[in-house]
């Protein structure tokens, strides 16, 4: 397959951007794990387990959401910063 050569791993100008790209790729996985934690909470079927209050649940779910949005915005803005082309890898996974 014809591919443009990948950038040198440690190339200075793009190194940080490529790592930001890595973080961006992992963000969804990170979010998925955090949002699946509620499946571990007692769902009320077990009377002995101390229930999680709704306000806590709300804070948790929306807190994760907020963090993800902020991280995503930060990553995207850094990643597609002034030098657009540098470090951007179009190669598929």
């Amino acid at each position: 397959m014809p591919r443009k050569p990948l950038p040198v791993f440690l190339e200075r100008s793009s190194y940080r951007k490529r790592r930001v790209m890595d973080a961006l790729k992992l963000l969804a996985l990170f979010g998925f794990i955090l949002w699946m934690i509620p499946t571990l909470w007692p769902d009320g079927s077990d009377p002995d387990a101390a229930p999680v209050s709704m306000s806590h649940a709300l804070f948790y779910v929306f807190g994760v959401w907020f963090v993800l949005i902020v991280l995503s915005a930060a990553f995207v803005s850094r990643q597609s910063g002034p030098k657009e082309k540098a470090g951007e890898s179009d190669a598929g996974p």
Partner: peptide, 13 residues
């Protein structure tokens, strides 16, 4: 909210 019927986490995993 906490005082209401919906006050606790009740969703099945």
């Amino acid at each position: 909210i906490d005082a209401s019927d919906l006050g606790t986490w009740q969703t099945s995993g």
